[in-house]
Design a protein around this nucleic acid. Structure first.
Lengths: 218, 218, 218, 218
DNA sequence: TATGAATGAGTATTCATTCAT
DNA sequence: GATGAATGAATACTCATTCAT
């Protein structure tokens, strides 16, 4: 696995026929990666499934790594659109901090769950591919910022002295726990111990407790 | 990557010379995996670094997979020994729940951090190798149980209605957050956002808050 | 040596350049097998001799076994074409049974002798590779049937009560004796005892005697 | 497969314990070769099955080839003893040439059949191992001579002008046909076309006809 | 631009043989 | 002698990438 830092050089065509085969490449690659991870598929597989020639793929992408990163871009686009919409809905509809926390935990959890299969390969790859890691992080930050902004609209209800830091920690912990459950980092196979429902409930409780309970006087 | 369920059949010699070369294999393999992951090294690399012939390796292990799993076993042995000792120290020395939480968070975080490089490859591999995943989970459960038992010695201080569930959720979230920071599941490369110190502090606060604050009346 | 039953999946190209390199592979493989048998050559050898890359070979054949079987198919094609032509000539030109037997023995013997080097490897391999064995047998039966049909045109001259059975036995014995002399089954190396000319003569005499002499009354 | 001409250098021990383990090596090797042929077994297999160390094997034999040839010697010893006894019985008990032919065909066929599994590996190997081929041939000649001598006791009944040549041709053809049926040269897998009983009958008839029918006047 | 045949470096694994104990 | 651990050359097969058509 090459860990090139070189930014991907995708050449997306605008015209109909080319556009269509370009699309098929990306879809085929995405499917294959969801099924087998970023390593266990070949460009021949992509060609076969997408009804595209190897040559065509190399017309559009400089390398297999490039293709992987392009697929990641598309996937994260979808994920972020959905998550930002979810945050927006929660923000406008939640009356108080605790309810907002509930909705954000639920929304984040279910959204990530829906995308788990397509995101997992990139999450795993991130540990060896810095380009994938960087893009993942940039997109993570977008959502983190949106979530934190929503929570900070209720700063008055936050008991922690540094509200900004507190909400960022909260989101980080929320994301980590969900991601691990879904097997992104996998650790113990995707079917972790414990129960999805319990995880969501306790995450919500924990975050709510953390934000609303004043820290002990040292 | 083979996802065999067959348990590894390691043939460990007891005598001096053999034992020594056996040791060198495992050390070389462990180093290589820490540096490059479980896939990007060859048995020839192991042979070269460990001053052993490939044939010797195949005398001891049925396959490369077998070697990987054997190294995992050794690593987890060390990790668990240290973590269980840490838990025991925290348990006996901490006077109240909050202090105990502090020490467990700190201890867990620092211990995992120390072992991050050797554990990471197995964590990543777990998503495709069920044998590695199973062994990882079994070892995780051991520590989780020890930590939870320590916390449950302070059941009186726990405000959550179901103390057992609460401590398990707490440890799970603690582990997930630390692991993600250390890049086990990585997501965004090991150099995550945020700060190690802050993560530890806020995890401790959050868990303490969760355990000690009574849940809201619905 | 794999004894797969899967039928070989050869992908023969039709166009000029591809066709030529495909041809070179098969020729190189055939030569190597004639010289060293079906086991003692590597695909790298084939590549080197045929000026083809190993990759190219794997483009055309699924495995080394596949290549071996493909070469067998080609060889048997040539052998059968020649033998069937020979039988046809003998059939039309021979006036009576004894003359026909003479010509068939001579024709079969000389034809097999000409092809001995290319056929030998497959004959030997047949004992462990059922696919090779099956193809060999199918091609053997074709010629056996042609020879027997030719002989049965002289049923009136055959003294054996069951003429069909008799001619089949005759051909079987003829084939076995020639094949063994040529070292197909080898036994004692190709340079057997006895003399080629004598073998042919006595085979002809024996078959003629068998077919024309009435069985003793029990 | 090395085709060394060097004569095998077996060092057979005379003492009890050594003798026993020597015996076990040979038995294990013979069994393995009957089951898998002369190539598809390892010296480790021999060691394991015969409860002997690899080193011990190399104490007695210079190489794997050497072991194979030693086993061949033992096997042919048994085969020849049985066949010679069979020929002797047939010789003394048969009253006339035709009856003798019948008994020799039957006896040869059944004897070879009984030994088919142990002989087959050597027959196949003979085509690439000249030492095995030479030994095989020498032992073949012994029996051929005995059979021919028995037949020549009935020279008066033999109509062929050159009785010596005729009986040798007869035996050669007999042996070839039986051997091929039993899959020594295998050709088409051991289960050839046709039927064992028919083969034996027609071989007997053919040889009898050949020996007793005067050749046509040219 | 598109194709897909061709390339060939790279890798896990086997096994006859050696040799220190 | 006996043992069996160690050796390492050898080999089938994969797949990202190139390039002639």
């Amino acid at each position: 696995m090459n860990v090139e830092t070189k930014i991907s050089a995708v050449r997306a065509p605008q015209q109909g026929r080319s556009r269509a085969s370009f699309e098929r490449m990306l879809i085929a690659a995405e499917e294959l990666m969801s099924e087998r991870g970023t390593d266990d598929f070949t460009l021949n597989d992509v060609g076969k499934r997408g009804k595209v020639s190897i040559g065509s793929i190399y017309c559009r992408f400089d390398s297999k790594d490039d293709l992987v990163r392009a697929v990641q871009t598309r996937v994260l686009e979808r994920v972020n659109a959905e998550q930002l919409a979810m945050v927006e809905r929660a923000r406008t509809e939640a009356s108080d901090l605790v309810v907002l926390v509930d909705r954000l935990v639920e929304g984040t959890a279910e959204s990530l769950r829906r995308f788990a299969d397509v995101m997992r390969p990139f999450m795993l790859r991130a540990s060896t591919d810095t380009v994938v890691a960087a893009q993942g992080k940039a997109r993570y930050v977008e959502i983190a910022d949106a979530v934190c902004a929503a929570l900070l609209e209720h700063t008055a209800e936050i008991a922690q002295p540094d509200a900004e830091r507190a909400v960022h920690s909260a989101y980080r912990i929320l994301y980590s726990s969900i991601a691990r459950y879904l097997g992104f980092g996998s650790t113990m196979g995707s079917a972790w111990d414990g129960d999805w429902q319990i995880l969501k409930e306790d995450l919500a409780r924990m975050i709510a407790a953390f934000l609303t309970m004043p820290p002990r006087i040292a």
